[in-house]
Structures are given as structure tokens and as C-alpha cells.
């Protein structure tokens, strides 16, 4: 470790920070988009219409069975083909933009399962109690079920987001410049793998560790309220 050269990091910090900014952007986009799409999928799975159930289950099971790296590459290659088919024009998307789309549709499958089990974790007796008080279906959902479900699933949703934040590093497969991709590109040029990869590992560790502690704290707070 004696010749660990901090100046490599200092001279390249701007490029690394750009990469980290992209990683955070993809994470936040996929989190918001994924939770929205995931909620829709979860409600479909819990709906009484079987085609809706089936469609949602197929979507969720499909994305949960394939490796994320494969989806990243497949979407990157197939999305332009599809757009060309739909619009008749060749639209260049680029690796960086394709990742936003991929992560949103991929993470939705994982968020959907979390949201579904959150809703199902509320005992049926609570629904009955809501109706017994004279609430309508939407009142029961809004006032009784969803607040409890959200509390149950919030820590898990956040934990999944930490996983997502780490998984963005897999855009390496299509050469996008995320945090890890930036470090890798510097390594290819300067041949300093020790400094670059260690920096990425340390930064990832510090951020994810802090976030997971925050989730734990939140969990204990929520546990007291219940």
C-alpha cells in the first residue's frame, strides 16, 4: 500500500464525480419510476380479474429470472430496433439513456413484489374492521390498509434501492460512464487499478453502509410506533 498515489484521484476527481452523479440519477429515476410501475403491477396481481393477475405475474417472474446484465445489454440492442419498427426512423439512444429505461422496467418487478407483500401483510381482520366501521372500499384502503402496508414495506423498499444503487455499476456491460465505469476508463488510460478500484469500493461502501444504517434506524422507529 506504500505507493498508493492519491494524486491520481485528485487529478481525476471531476470525471469520477460526473460518474457518481450519473449513478445517482439512474438510481433515483429507476426508484421513482420503478415504484410507480411496481405499485401498478402489485395492484394488478392482487386484482380479481385473472388476465390482469396473469399479465403482472408474467412480467414480474420474467424479470426476476434473468440476470440484470443480460437485460441491460438486450434492451440496449433491442430498444432501437423496436423504436425503428414503431416510428420508421432510426433513433440513436445511446448507452447512458438506455440504462434509465432498463433499470426502471427491471426494478419495477422487484418493487412490485415488495409492495404486494406489504399490502398482504396487513391482516384481513383490519379490512373487516374498516368495513364494520362503515368505511367504503377506498376509505378502508386509504385510512386503514395502505398506511400500515407502507410502514411495513418502507424499509424493504429502501433496502432494494440500495441494491439498485450498487447494481447501476453493471452498465459497465454497455460501456456507459457511471461511477464504476468512470474509474474503469481512467484505469484503462493511466493503468492505476489499485487507486481507482479501491476508491470506487470505499465510496460505495461508505454510502451504502450509511444508507443501510439509516434504514435500520428507520425500521426501529417504525417498530416502536406499531
Amino acid at each position: 500500500m506504500g505507493d498508493f498515489d492519491f494524486s491520481i484521484i485528485a487529478t481525476n476527481w471531476r470525471f469520477l464525480a460526473e460518474g457518481l452523479r450519473y449513478t445517482v440519477q439512474v438510481t433515483l429515476t429507476a426508484m421513482v419510476g420503478g415504484i410507480l410501475l411496481g405499485t401498478l403491477l402489485a395492484l394488478m396481481r392482487l386484482a380479481s380479474l385473472w388476465p390482469l393477475q396473469w399479465l403482472a405475474a408474467a412480467y414480474i417472474n420474467f424479470f426476476r429470472s434473468v440476470p440484470l446484465v443480460q437485460v441491460i445489454l438486450a434492451v440496449y440492442l433491442i430498444l432501437p430496433l423496436l423504436l425503428q419498427f414503431l416510428t420508421g426512423r432510426l433513433i440513436p439512444i445511446g448507452a447512458d439513456n438506455s440504462a434509465y429505461f432498463t433499470f426502471t422496467i427491471f426494478e419495477a418487478a422487484y418493487y412490485a413484489e415488495i409492495i404486494r407483500s406489504g399490502i398482504q401483510s396487513v391482516p384481513r381482520g383490519q379490512v373487516a374492521a374498516g368495513y364494520a366501521l362503515g368505511f367504503t372500499y377506498s376509505q378502508t384502503m386509504r385510512l386503514v390498509v395502505l398506511p400500515q402496508a407502507f410502514r411495513n414495506m418502507l424499509p424493504v423498499l429502501l433496502t432494494q434501492t440500495i441494491v439498485l444503487f450498487q447494481d447501476v455499476s453493471l452498465v459497465y456491460a454497455i460501456g456507459a460512464t457511471d461511477f464504476f465505469g468512470a474509474a474503469d476508463k481512467i484505469t484503462q488510460r493511466d493503468l492505476r487499478p489499485v487507486e481507482m478500484y479501491t476508491t470506487v469500493a470505499v465510496v460505495y461502501f461508505v454510502l451504502c453502509f450509511a444508507l443501510s444504517r439509516l434504514v435500520k434506524y428507520l425500521q426501529s422507529r417504525i417498530a416502536i410506533i406499531r
Partner: peptide
């Protein structure tokens, strides 16, 4: 708390 691909690169290149 470290992404898998980064962990693999640590073992292989660092």
C-alpha cells in the same frame, strides 16, 4: 455494501 463487479475487480486487479 460493495457492488459485485467492484468486488470481483478488487480480487482480480487490486
Amino acid at each position: 455494501n460493495i457492488p459485485l463487479i467492484v468486488q470481483l475487480f478488487l480480487w482480480f486487479f487490486v
